[in-house]
Amino acid sequence: MKQSTFDNKYLPYILLIPTFFILVVFLFYPAIETFRLSFFKIHPWTGAEKFAGFYNFVKIFTNRDYLRSFILSAFFALIVIAAGLFLSLLIALLLNQKIKGMRFYRSLLIWPYALSPAIAGALFNFLFNPANGVLCYFTGFRTWLTNGNTAIIVVIIAAVWKNLGYNIIFYLTSLRNVPGAALESASIDGAGSVKKFIYITFAFLSPTTFFLFVMNTIYAYFASFGLIDVLTEGGPSGSTKILIYYLYKDFFVHSKIGYAAAESLVLFSLVVGVTALQFRTAGKKVHYQ
């Protein structure tokens, strides 16, 4: 359906000027400039530049700590996504039952979404701090945050906890859209059709799952910065130092500006990959609906 339009030669451009002014100054220019800086060595205090070719890229990709952070980020994102989507789907399925007080339960289950990653970090830091953390006491295990293998678990739990509400809402919405008739016939048929039920539901949920996969990837890679800064500061021994935290440290703490620019480019290619996936998701969605 083609929409009617107004005829005006200049007005659309005028309407777009504010947006493009912001885009050029704060998005396009900084993006290109970051790209340029990734080929320079830069003085930490004065900002003086020296051309360095691919030096920064060679350095970060031959740095074992950076590679470790790269793998850690992927691992972290995968677990956060898998655990987050699984749990939120379970809860959404519960919430989708026709019982009294559903709205009440829904509110009580999704509210952590409104909290920030930094708050989640503070809460979990308090729960697991080795001196008097409540959950250290009840689990009988003191070193949750001081041991690298368990610190990442705490970070994952906190990250999943904080984003659960967001995922639940989307699953709940899309569960509502599963045609009742299809499910009803499945549930009446009894035991043999559990499989069918699962199959039908999952088929209808897959666009949402794709969408959430993309959003949770972005969340795990970027938004979890506040969580990690407040909870572990990337420690112990870099065991929770994901790429965004690495970038922050190199840029803001150690003033290795050239490295930081190169690391930004790595993150950029990641976003490109995920966005490509998002377009595929959009395609799938059209296919299903």
Binding site: N129, P130, A131, N132, R142, T143, L145, T146, E233, G235, P236
Partner: peptide, 19 residues
């Protein structure tokens, strides 16, 4: 020796609580 991690709070707490 009790490992209380980095930061300036936990070791003080452990001493103050008599642990």
């Amino acid at each position: 020796f009790l490992d209380v991690g980095p930061g300036w709070s936990n070791h003080r707490a452990a001493f103050g609580s008599g642990e």
